[in-house]
């Protein structure tokens, strides 16, 4: 990590770090900085320009936040890949079937009077509630 004219520059090697890791790092900085990326065959050069001038320590901390998040993202992807056989078995059925809602009450479907009585109950509660202070 190097300081360069009010900005901080970090070099990150491929293939450990990818574009997504850099995006995660940039996201963690949010509006605090602008992030510019240059790419060559073996690495990324990332220039982080703070939104407002910062001291050297604060600049290094900003670069550190970026690096922490980029590393966390890269490592998390490895963990996710390693655990994928297990998590797929858990998440696939959960999302495949969606979140089924409670089906309509068969009693209300079969007996229109039940539905009408319940609507009356509701109206009565609302009327009583409107009269409360």
């Amino acid at each position: 990590m190097k300081l360069a004219k009010g900005a901080v520059v970090v070099k990150l090697g491929k293939p450990l770090y990818g574009a997504q890791a850099l995006a995660a790092g940039a996201l963690a900085l949010g509006a605090r900085a602008k992030v510019f990326v240059e790419e060559n065959k073996s690495s990324f050069s990332v220039r982080i320009e703070p939104a407002s001038p910062l001291s050297e320590d604060a600049l290094l901390a900003l670069g550190g936040s970026f690096l922490n998040e980029a590393l966390n993202h890269a490592y998390r992807q490895r963990v996710i890949q390693a655990n994928a056989p297990l998590t797929r078995a858990i998440f696939a059925p959960l999302f495949a079937k969606g979140f089924p809602a409670v089906p309509a009450d068969p009693l209300e479907e079969l007996e229109p009077q039940v539905k009408a009585d319940r609507a009356l109950d509701l109206e009565e509660f609302l009327t009583q509630a409107r009269g409360l202070k």
Binding site: L107, F125, Q128, A129, R130
Partner: peptide
């Protein structure tokens, strides 16, 4: 209070229905 009272009554009744 009116909203609290209503939710208590309605949720109780909905619980019985379901």
């Amino acid at each position: 209070w009116p909203v609290l009272w209503f939710i208590v009554q309605y949720a109780r009744r909905k619980g019985e229905w379901s």
